[in-house]
Amino acid sequence: MNALDVLAGFGANGRIGPLYRGASLPEITAELGEPWDGGPIDGSNRWPHRFGYGSIDLTVCRCRRVSSMSADVWRESHEILDPGSNALIPVGSDLPLRRFTAALDSHGCRWRAEDQPAIGQIDVVTEPAGVVFVFVTRTHDTVFPQPLLANAAVWSAPHDCPPIPPGTPDGGFGT
């Protein structure tokens, strides 16, 4: 599977393999192994905490559930999870809007574009998964001939965590 298909599938169903909003961190680590550790979100509390695989960044609540995930594809080198093999595959940094929306269409994914000209981007929002794909039209010193994919993200509304099982280590993955 190529990165464009993985990202279009993410748009269609909000998942990249075992990674999705609400996924259990212990179940993810049982399937994929230990993630990279990005540290606490606010720096003063352990939770919420950032973890990830390749260029996929997960925000995990203290109840060890994924509350948001994003894939930053605006870098020289980035990788995304291939849900078929759970291997990391490279993502090209030149995914244009037209090519991407054609891939969403081929996956039967409904989407709408929201132009943000003041900040130089176009957001493509998928339905019903609610994944937001950010395409940049310019940077501070460059105007692109066509909008290019920079980021894909989905998040959940804040929630009340269920009780944490007794004995769950606060510093670990909850496994």
Rank of each mutant, 00 (worst) to 15 (best):
H78L: 14
E79S: 15
I80C: 01
L81R: 07
D82Q: 13
D82C: 11
D82I: 02
P83C: 13
G84Y: 04
G84A: 15
G84L: 15
S85L: 12
N86D: 12
L88Y: 01
L88P: 03
I89T: 13
I89A: 08
P90E: 09
P90G: 10
P90Y: 08
P90A: 13
V91I: 14
V91T: 13
V91E: 02
V91S: 10
S93M: 14
S93E: 15
L95N: 06
P96A: 15
P96M: 09
R98K: 15
R98S: 15
F100Y: 12
A102S: 15
A103Y: 05
L104G: 04
S106T: 07
S106N: 12
G108Q: 06
G108Y: 11
G108T: 01
G108E: 05
C109E: 02
R110P: 03
R110C: 07
W111H: 04
W111Q: 10
A113T: 12
A113I: 09
D115M: 08
Q116T: 00
Q116C: 05
Q116M: 11
A118W: 00
A118L: 09
I119L: 08
I119Q: 13
I119R: 10
I119G: 00
G120F: 08
G120D: 04
Q121L: 14
Q121S: 13
Q121W: 11
I122M: 08
I122Q: 04
V124D: 00
V125F: 07
V125R: 08
V125M: 04
T126D: 10
T126R: 00
E127I: 04
E127K: 08
P128H: 09
P128E: 01
A129E: 04
G130D: 00
V131F: 01
V131Q: 08
V134Q: 13
F135T: 05
F135S: 05
F135G: 01
F135R: 01
V136L: 14
T137Y: 03
R138S: 10
R138N: 05
